[in-house]
């Protein structure tokens, strides 16, 4: 699960560590994660339930929220509910979903609710730190598995670079990038493989994230229905 090189791009223009709120209902996991994150991030708050999370995020206004997908409290919506209830803050606070589960419904639902990326809880401290920095810098974080979901959902047939703003399909380049990420390449390695800059890779990934969040694509619904997601 080494998607992200350790020397990830620091958030542009931000001095000092990135402020983070950890939302997870397991105290042991929270303290473990806190110990694992390095000095490039500063944990400014913690929460264990949906209500606490919404309150803490609103008062602490961190740059990034590490959000567990499964949370008690609220209406039972877990991490997705935190996202929808904090929707007004989505402009300033970025959410990175954390999950033990790589079940498609968990991942896709938080992404569609506005999370900027997803990492599994088995990722190492440095990996999660890198993912936090990347999200804080405005980029999306795709694990190999999330890239696999995207490819499965949007289909893998290459399409010509039609209108770039079309939401229902991935451009050939975006498919290339998704494929490499699914194969375990870091953004940097993908850039090298495709002879493009890391920044371009990040742009492609962000574009795919946007499409994943906004599309009503028929195939996506069918794919989800096949897996009984919605």
């Amino acid at each position: 699960m080494t998607t992200h090189e350790h020397a990830a791009a620091a958030p542009s223009g931000a001095a000092g560590p990135v402020t983070v709120v950890i939302v997870d209902d397991h105290t042991i996991f929270r303290s473990g994660l806190k110990a694992d994150l390095d000095e490039r991030v500063a944990v400014v708050g913690e929460a264990g339930t949906v209500e606490d999370a919404v309150a803490v995020i609103d008062s602490a206004r961190p740059q990034v929220v590490l959000l567990d997908v499964h949370l008690p409290g609220g209406l039972g919506g877990g991490g997705r509910e935190v996202l929808t209830r904090s929707a007004a803050l989505l402009g300033q606070v970025r959410f990175l979903a954390l999950s033990v589960s790589d079940a498609a419904e968990d991942v896709v639902s938080v992404i569609r609710a506005g999370a900027r990326g997803y990492v599994t809880k088995t990722a190492s401290g440095p990996e999660i730190t890198d993912a936090v920095l990347r999200v804080a810098g405005g980029d999306a974080v795709f694990s190999p598995r999330l890239a696999g979901f995207v490819l499965d959902a949007f289909g893998t047939a290459a399409v010509a670079d039609v209108a770039d703003d079309e939401l229902d399909r991935l451009s050939a380049r975006e498919l290339d990038v998704m494929r490499l990420i699914a194969r375990g390449y870091t953004y940097r390695e993908a850039a090298k493989e495709l002879f493009i800059s890391v920044k371009t890779v990040e742009t492609h990934v962000s574009a795919v994230l946007r499409k994943l969040q906004l599309t009503n694509r028929h195939e996506l619904s069918r794919w989800a229905a096949d897996r009984k997601i919605w």
Binding site: L83, R112, I229, W230
Partner: peptide, 15 residues
């Protein structure tokens, strides 16, 4: 009704 993980997120989109 089938428990839906995504429906609320989707229904935010006019659908």
């Amino acid at each position: 009704r089938p428990a839906s993980a995504i429906a609320p997120a989707v229904s935010a989109v006019p659908d």
